[in-house]
Simulated scan of single mutants.
Amino acid sequence: MANNIRTKQALIIVAIVLLTGFLFTRPIKGLVKPKEEAAKPAAMADQTATAQPSLEEISSTAKNLISSASSKEITVLENTYKGASGAEKLAEAQKLAQKWEDLEQPAPSALYLEVVANGESSLANWLNAGNRFLKAFDNTQDSLLQPNMLQKANNAFTKALALDSTSLDAKTGLGITIVNGLGAPMQGIVMLREVVEKDPKNLKANMNLGMFAIKSGQFDKAIVRFNNIISQIKATPDAYFYLATAYESLGQNKEAIDAYLNSKKLAANPTLSSFIDKKVAELKNKR
């Protein structure tokens, strides 16, 4: 039984890793056992306290991931930003945030959005920064940068909620950061459930509740959640993918195959398609 559980968890982790980068809502970072989950917030906090890379360091690292021409464009914008002040500096920070986002580098983009939010504190600015920090948290494989991005997302959503305590977007974002390590997971789940109670068709909150159900091994609940998302909110490739993962974990291979194929059809991503083709072949051989 223990081996079967570990095998299912391994399959889920592999599937989620493959999904990251193809799809656009929050993925689960991995499966954590209850004792590990309890210890995770403290470990995450310790890492965040010791790892505070500067904007310059993060931008320098990101420049190594883009073309030489794009790097030169960024440098020109950075020089203009450094020489500006007041409202002009914030405008230049916004330009840099957008440029980095266009180049698919969310970490430096998020840091510039944080500059904008600190300069002009508004609900929209803090939500933009928080969402971009979550995206950076999702996309980075840097174990030191991850907790930093998550902490900054938490801070941004906390400030957004302070400006508008009724903001469901702020509460959703804050709940996601808590579930992922900045507090007791159930505290974050309660926040997400409160969002869904007020807005039953909130895609982000529902997706994260479904993903947490998978993470905690509650596959039946995950299946109900993702089927509801698909039928009542939006049939997305990631919703189908997680649905397939939950079905597969319960040994319901026919249902898993159907869901995987729907994910492939909607995503139209060559890498994901290749993975799903192999997965479907494996599941057919088990029938």
Rank of each mutant, 00 (worst) to 15 (best):
L203E: 03
Q98M: 12
L96Y: 02
S54D: 09
A259N: 12
A160H: 02
G21V: 03
A184D: 15
A259E: 04
E248C: 02
E197H: 10
K198T: 11
S67E: 01
R6T: 09
I233S: 05
N118K: 12
Y81H: 12
A259Q: 03
P108V: 04
A153E: 02
L65N: 07
T25D: 14
A184H: 11
E194M: 04
T48V: 15
R287G: 14
S121I: 05
A10W: 06
I223N: 00
M211P: 06
N208G: 11
M1T: 10
E282G: 14
K265M: 03
N262H: 09
E104Y: 09
K201G: 00
Y247P: 00
G83T: 03
K82I: 08
S71Q: 06
P185N: 10
L90G: 11
K286E: 10
L31R: 06
K265D: 05
Q105V: 02
L174D: 04
S122L: 00
A38V: 13
A84E: 08
V76N: 06
K40S: 13
K234H: 11
L65S: 05
Y247K: 01
L266W: 05
I66Q: 01
I16V: 15
T20G: 12
K278E: 11
K264Q: 11
K264W: 07
M207C: 05
G173W: 11
P185H: 00
A160S: 11
V32G: 13
D169M: 09
S274W: 07
A235C: 01
V116P: 00
S231C: 07
M207N: 13
E120N: 14
L163R: 03
P106M: 03
T140Q: 07
F22I: 15
A43T: 13
L161T: 01
N208A: 10
Q151I: 06
P200E: 05
M211E: 14
E57P: 10
A93D: 06
A10E: 07
A107D: 08
K95L: 11
I58Q: 04
A124V: 05
L266T: 01
T140A: 14
A49N: 12
E57Y: 00
Y112K: 05
P147N: 05
A129W: 02
Y242S: 08
L163Y: 07
A38L: 14
A162M: 08
K171C: 01
V115F: 09
D164P: 09
S273C: 03
A160N: 04
T158E: 09
K99W: 00
K204P: 04
S70N: 13
P34L: 06
A117G: 01
K265V: 02
P270M: 06
T61H: 08
S59F: 02
V196S: 09
V17D: 15
Q146F: 12
N3W: 12
A87R: 02
Q151G: 15
R287M: 13
I13F: 08
A38C: 04
L11N: 15
A124Q: 10
N206K: 01
Q151E: 13
I12E: 12
L145M: 07
